[in-house]
Design a protein around this nucleic acid. Structure first.
Length: 461
RNA sequence: UGCCCGGUAGCUCAGUGGCAGAGCAGGUGACUGUUAAUCACUUGGUCGCUGGUUCGAUCCCAGCCCGGGCAGCCA
């Protein structure tokens, strides 16, 4: 007999004379003549109720079917006589495969997220984390569906990179040199020409530059992979290792880029609502009561758009006192972004056309000469979830920007070649996958939407 | 990295300069088509670590370690 997943058993349309279930005991309630066992196999949030009658030959072992034990049950699927569930399984045999004694940390009680983080090897067995990681899986799939349906090509950009690209934050070094006894140059510096790749190498902070290569060949591409930032960031929305989706579109300007970002975010929300309804219900009950209403609200109306200059004006006349002063030419601080998304617009906002001096060299310079075609999508509760831009496609302007950013033209010879040969206007953005998950699930800490979080000082499991 | 808060039973927390507490979990028993069942009884402690003040420190002080929140960096 083949195993039936509990998800399928719960959705049965008729009783079954023979069923095989395998899973883990969530809780057991003993009566004098029988026991109720709630069995969960992770296929869905809900467990199924198993009735084990005291007349069963193995009933003496029922006390080993404790919370956390793995169990195999054969029996009949019948309509439940009790309230609270449609179906239940009357066991004919049950076998405790693996016992779980009283030291099992995940007892049937509420646990804090902080405690569960310390037992990241067991927390997927909890309701919350089972739900989070089912949604994570579903959205990863939906990302591919969204882009594939639009004819985008999935590109695997390298994880190890030798280009300190963008100068975007601190990089993790990849090296096989002996740290206690590295080869030295005559001047006494570490001689990286002796290192594995013959030069300094790092973990990628973005696949964008390589994605641009493919966009200028295959037109519409996207990447979806791990990204590494060695920043000493200790916040609920930063991780040292996270996953990022980076579409890159040829013949696309900033407006098209913003359109795609909005369509993409809404698609993912809609997909989660459609395919993870039970899990989202759970989040809205136990994590964030306003979750479903907020997701509907976001789906129902267009995202707001506002230029950086307009944003500065809005902040200036808000009547608020800011911890960080508002001035044209300064970065928008967290408090400013939160105000725009949560209080002023009360909905996701795309802020675009930032001062040139605040942004990286590859962003396209606007006609005013002062701003570049950057865009950030800010969402209530989380802040920046997407950052993107139209890229500078004019060779002379790009080179001028590189000089202004003190970047070596020689190092980026291949990047400038894209403008030297058949250049096209093109755009793209990066969506933080974990931040998107936070938004969809209502989970407030990025460490709780990634299976094994890597943050400064922590790389357990 | 800076500022703030916390660390007491397996978990969540209360508490006091003078015998270490509760709820849940665990154990035993009772009861029940139960639903994180219920009721009674019960086991369980390096009070984060090191040093200092004190007759006496879990409590006060200092340093360190760990966790969390916020800020910066960003997705």
């Amino acid at each position: 007999m083949s195993r039936t997943l509990i998800k399928d058993a719960l959705h049965a349309t008729a009783p079954m004379d023979a069923i095989l279930l395998q899973g883990w005991v969530r809780t057991r309630r003993d009566a004098k003549a029988f026991s109720f066992i709630e069995l969960n196999d992770g296929s869905c949030l809900k467990g199924i109720q198993v009735i084990a009658d005291a007349s069963l030959p193995d009933y003496a072992h029922i006390t080993k079917a404790n919370t956390g034990a793995s169990l195999e049950v054969r029996g009949k699927l019948v309509e439940s006589k009790g309230q609270g569930q449609k179906w239940e399984v009357v066991a004919e045999t049950f076998t405790v495969i693996g016992e779980a004694d009283a030291t099992y940390p995940l007892q049937k009680k509420g646990h804090t997220l902080e405690f569960l983080r310390e037992i990241a090897h067991l927390r997927p067995r909890s309701n919350l984390f089972g739900a989070v990681f089912r949604v994570r899986s579903r959205l990863a799939y939906a990302i591919h569906q969204f882009f594939q349906a639009k004819g985008f090509c999935y590109v695997h950009t390298p994880i190890i990179t030798a280009s300190d690209c963008e100068g975007a934050g601190e990089l993790f070094r990849v090296s096989t040199l002996d740290p206690l006894n590295p080869p030295k140059t005559e001047q006494g510096a570490i001689d990286y020409t002796k290192d594995f790749f013959g030069k300094q190498a790092y973990l990628t902070v973005s696949g964008q530059l390589e994605a641009e290569i493919f966009a200028t060949a295959l037109s519409n591409v996207y990447t979806f992979g791990p990204t590494f930032r060695a920043e000493n960031s200790n916040t609920s929305r930063h991780a040292s290792e996270f996953w990022m989706i980076e579409p890159e579109i040829a013949f696309c300007d900033l407006a098209g880029n913003m359109d795609l970002a909005e369509e993409f975010v809404k698609y993912l929300i809609r997909d989660a609502k459609e395919h993870c309804a039970g899990d989202l219900d759970f989040f809205s009950k136990f994590v964030d009561k306003d979750l479903l209403a907020r997701l509907d609200f976001v789906l129902e109306r267009p995202f707001q758009r506002c230029s950086y200059t307009e944003a500065i004006e809005i902040l200036g006349r808000s009547g608020k006192t800011w911890e960080h002063p508002v001035a044209w030419g300064d970065n928008l601080q967290s408090e400013h972004e939160r105000f725009l998304a949560e209080e002023h617009f009360k909905c996701p906002v795309t802020v675009y056309n930032y001062p040139r001096t605040l942004k990286p060299f590859y962003m396209r310079v606007n006609a005013d000469g002062k701003t570049v075609t950057a865009m950030d999508l800010l969402v209530p509760g989380i802040g920046e979830i997407i950052g993107g831009s139209q890229r500078e496609e004019r060779l002379d302007v790009l080179i001028e920007n590189m000089r202004a950013h003190h970047l070596s033209e020689k190092e980026y010879w291949w990047y400038t070649d894209l403008r030297r040969y058949g250049t096209v206007p093109h755009s793209g953005f990066g969506l933080g996958f974990e931040r998107m998950l936070m938004f969809v699930t209502g989970v407030a800490n990025i460490r709780d939407v990634i299976p094994f979080a890597r943050t400064p000082g922590t790389a357990e499991f």
